[in-house]
Design a protein around this nucleic acid. Sequence first.
DNA 1: TACTTGGCTTCCGTTCAGTGGAAGGGGTGG
DNA 2: CCACCCCTTCCACTGAACGGAAGCCAAGTA
Lengths: 243, 243
Amino acid sequence: MAASVTSRALDVLGAFDAEHRSLTLSELARRAGLPLATAHRLIGELREWGALARLESGEYVIGRRLWDLGLLAPVQSGLRQAASPFLHDLYGATLATVHLAVRDGCEVLYVDRLAGHVSVPVVSEIGSRLPLHATGVGKVLLAYAPEDVRAEVFTRLTRITPYTITQPSRLAEQLRRVRTDGYATTGEEMSLGACSVAVPVGADGVVAALGIVVPDLRRDKARLVAALQVAARGIGRTLASAE
Amino acid sequence: MAASVTSRALDVLGAFDAEHRSLTLSELARRAGLPLATAHRLIGELREWGALARLESGEYVIGRRLWDLGLLAPVQSGLRQAASPFLHDLYGATLATVHLAVRDGCEVLYVDRLAGHVSVPVVSEIGSRLPLHATGVGKVLLAYAPEDVRAEVFTRLTRITPYTITQPSRLAEQLRRVRTDGYATTGEEMSLGACSVAVPVGADGVVAALGIVVPDLRRDKARLVAALQVAARGIGRTLASAE
DNA sequence: TACTTGGCTTCCGTTCAGTGGAAGGGGTGG
DNA sequence: CCACCCCTTCCACTGAACGGAAGCCAAGTA
């Protein structure tokens, strides 16, 4: 329980997440599990360095310096760089929200994202994590994931919308079809009004998934799948040649 | 001189920059100005939390968790969000590398960037800072910057390529033309083989600059400027309606 | 105007976590 | 085999971090 200064400072930073981008001193202290005075002092130091900033409202937010630092992280930077132009092509061809994601443990981690003008209700953002079983990219990644991951995911198929697949047998069947068909689809399983298609990406082995989100899939699924596969192949080729 | 633990830990993080994305223990210690043993222990804690990660090579890099955190920083997030679709449109129309930048003191800060397949030699990345006088977006931002910033910049017009403008009178003349014409251009002033066009962005007052980089400007400057202005107006309108 | 409430800031004596020199381990190359 | 460099671990000393308490300030209430 006795926490080191460093870990306490990090806990302060860890108090921020996608739902809590700005916090007051007392919220920060509470979320970090620190006495007010201690949090106050730590925040002061973090702020001085630029890790935190303070809004006019008095709330604290992540500072620009951490933004800078974060961009230096090699989080799939090779993949992102290789994929970038193809994501734009894909957006150009479909005008849909485009996602590039990898599997991080038992979750989908969105590493790049490209939103169009008219956006269907999409919950993902770059850096956000979502369950593997309820998203298009997630199903693709799950279909090619090691056995233990799949087993783990199957134990808790949490329901998100009325259409979320929570029955292990149904999901297993879908994953089988993903492997034979080469693409995965979802229909309002993550958020109502949003359907998705996704395909695997990789030179040898699946390293990522590429997906798009559209309001409706019935109309031109074939065209979308084709566009996705062209982009995925392009990314795969770029990745392979980069080595 | 006596540094707090927190500031030391932050100094370790601060040892990373665009030129040093991965560092060995001893490099880190040296750059952070810490004894090896101390750095070692701090790094251990940072690593445990996920702020740092270790490559197979033994070098340390910024960890995924800091990447997550950095994305939460409100660095022009309103602007980026509003601009995002228009950047894609612009890319679609021009197939050139697209930049969205703001002025940060006496430098250009690139807040978004979108690279195409064939990339001219472009040095900018998201998060990078470049001089105001040698880039297209920089000239736009400079043209609408307060007097004191302009004065400051004019005192050191460092030469980067043989074509960089280092003569204050010439730059002043160009900025005047930017204000009358509504766009700025550069020709290999930042890196050889790269020309750029940029226009101001903003509902009232210039809040950012939008630019593209192309290998050659002589051919269809007029078309590119038109495309830029359409996008810039779109962003401006989105920003205005968001308030 | 006086009182309460709630969040923020400062103070300071105690104490325990952080310190860093030194010694040990492991790989490379001469 | 030794020399060199880099990483890791140890541990006795000490000064930096701690946090309860008191003081502030602003907004709401009587």
